[in-house]
Design a protein around this nucleic acid. Structure first.
Lengths: 353, 353
DNA sequence: CTACATTGGGCAAGCGCTTTCCATTGACGA
DNA sequence: TCGTCAATGGAAAGCGCTTGCCCAATGTAG
């Protein structure tokens, strides 16, 4: 249909390989081989002529044409719930660092915590022939959405893509998983050692696996120590700062007897601190507070928050590495990450029993 | 060369439009027109046959092939310095929100504050036929790198792409610019009103425009009020939390007489607070502290930080809108954003003169 | 009942690149 | 001198999609 003449002057501003080849007086094939460095050798003379022409004309390869011809792209997907959340942005920093180091391009998708968005984004990435995808964020216990996601992952994988997850289990993909249970348990033991016996927990959403595991781990460490966790001291709510704020308000309204509050993640703990401040309560004098994740902003809170440290950026890097290392293991690989209890000022021995 | 048979079974797992067309018993052209909804009409019967076949076969259009054929993609670039920095991640959230709302795909590039990376990323995005790019982060006064970037922007634009910036001026592209000067001046006036007369400033890098403008604005407001700013009270350093921390340590080592410290951005102010805490100084009793930007994490600091609020997420959205609204104004459009002084507890009347 | 739009379908020529074949060349041993 | 082989160049067939153009089948006006 000749929408544009072939090899004509400036055209719409694009310089094509054909123009470079013509300018260098070689065939398209030779030019291609020089520019992208194929397995085939090209003689010194021609090679130089081609590179010179390319530079002179300002040649820039058309990435979609290459993707189409090679049937593989330099795109790496990164799917997070909310890029403004420091938990995700830290992981994102790790992923981009690794991907950009490999000369790849990161495509960012945000789900807003809607499970079907994950599936949708994954298929968009498949349409773009992304070579790998890093999927960040915990699964919910909703089996249907997990199954749909697993199906989409399998399709993606069958078509030559690789998928790695952060903090997801039970998906047919390599995963970097924090040991939420043991981390929470270790934290619980630490807090018990401080002298706490009455705990309250901001447990996050009821259906979120990470939240449940942390609750479970914390709870079983308490049980092992012979400590009961009162039902009314476990409050569920959104996995966000505002969720933590609101949950804390609800908790305190019950007139809890707890001396220590564990929020299953740091942003919730941050919200909790704000709520307690608004209620005129002092941390840790009136109530100790601990979180989970060790997001970077945490160290600047006053009092600094006790938490379980996860190497977020490293986890992102590691996930990117899993997705890009070219291996295709029969079984999904699982890289466990241990949390480390970081004691800071927000927790102290209880002043009341 | 027939690397793969045409229209053969499952192949490498891809379903092509050709297979859909064959399955529906129509031509490739008709199938294409049904699937993407061209200007041309397709009869009810065929239309249904095609959609049914597409669904049945699980057809997913190959994005690179479409990009190649249409010579335009659904990619939107987003270039930031550091995605883990809350300033950038807030803006990024705004950009992705708008872009995803338009059905576009966001490509994230990080520069690590290296000017030549911006140029490099922009050309990568051009290679991908990104339809627009949002470029976030202040220019430096280095004219050479600004010129190179401007050149690359012009090439990008000439080839049909659109570019919008946040917080950059003097580039041939639409821009959302915070009024750094007036924001800083307003803050200065507020602080003067509180009673401060001796100021210290964490001025950030000497070559960064935003930092300079904020310093300038602050300084001229002081001058207008007849207040001198002592040379040794202006400390330069990195535009990061650690830069703020380190600058503050240096400042305090000089035995400054300032009663109020202005950090030209919030992450630096956060570092300053940490440094002061480590030095055993109280904020605001010993020293008032103020920042600029109003990043979300700020409200959780103790004391909460006085700052100049910028609607970061909105700015990101607005920039995305500028880049995607299809206009091609002759002159770059400039959307000014006013900062609003937010007085919080980190500033109080001075206790010493 | 003819002339003429109008509609909807299909053919096939691209988009810009990669890569398979094939042709040519020169080096080398027999 | 000739055949063999490795090295290197080029022609051309795709990759999967869009779309200009042609054409048959309708509807419409004269």
């Amino acid at each position: 249909m000749a929408r544009r003449g072939k090899g004509d002057g400036v055209g719409s501003g694009y310089v094509t390989l054909e123009q470079v080849a013509k300018h260098a007086g070689v065939s398209l094939a030779t030019a291609s081989r020089v520019i992208n460095g194929s397995t085939r050798q090209v003689g010194e003379k021609l090679r130089e002529r081609v590179t010179a022409s390319a530079r002179e004309l300002g040649y820039l390869a058309n990435a979609s044409a290459q993707t189409l011809a090679r049937n593989t792209s330099s795109l790496v997907g990164l799917i997070v719930h909310d890029i403004a959340d420091p938990y995700f942005s830290s992981i994102a920093a790790g992923v981009t660092r690794h991907a950009e180091g490999e000369g790849l391009v990161v495509v960012l998708g945000t789900t807003g915590r809607a499970p079907q968005r994950e599936v949708q984004l994954l298929s968009t990435l498949r349409a773009h022939r992304a070579r790998a995808v890093v999927l960040v964020g915990s699964r919910t216990i909703d089996e249907e959405s997990t199954r749909k996601l697993a199906d989409e992952i399998r399709i993606f994988t069958r078509q030559g893509g690789r998928v790695a997850c952060v903090s997801q289990e039970g998906l047919p993909a390599d995963t970097v998983v924090p040991d939420n249970r043991n981390g929470a348990a270790a934290l619980a033991r630490h807090l018990i050692e401080l002298g706490h016996r009455k705990f309250a927990i901001l447990a996050g959403p009821t259906d979120l696996c990470a939240a449940r595991d942390r609750l479970d781990g914390f709870h079983s460490a308490l049980s092992s120590a012979g400590i009961e966790l009162a039902y009314h001291n476990v409050v569920h709510g959104a996995f966000t700062r505002d969720g933590g704020y609101e949950s804390t308000k609800r908790l305190m309204a019950t007139g809890t007897d707890a001396t220590c509050l564990f929020a299953v993640n740091d942003v919730m703990a941050t919200g909790a601190m704000a709520a307690l401040r608004d209620l005129g309560l002092r941390v840790p004098e009136d109530l100790s507070v601990a979180g989970f994740d060790d997001i970077p902003t945490l160290r600047d809170l006053t009092p600094a928050l006790t938490t379980v440290r996860l190497p977020l950026e490293k986890m992102g890097e590691e996930a990117a590495r899993l997705a890009l290392d070219g291996e295709t293991p029969d079984e999904p690989r699982v890289i466990p990450v241990q949390g480390e209890v970081i004691a800071r000022e927000s927790t102290a021995p209880p002043t009341r029993s």
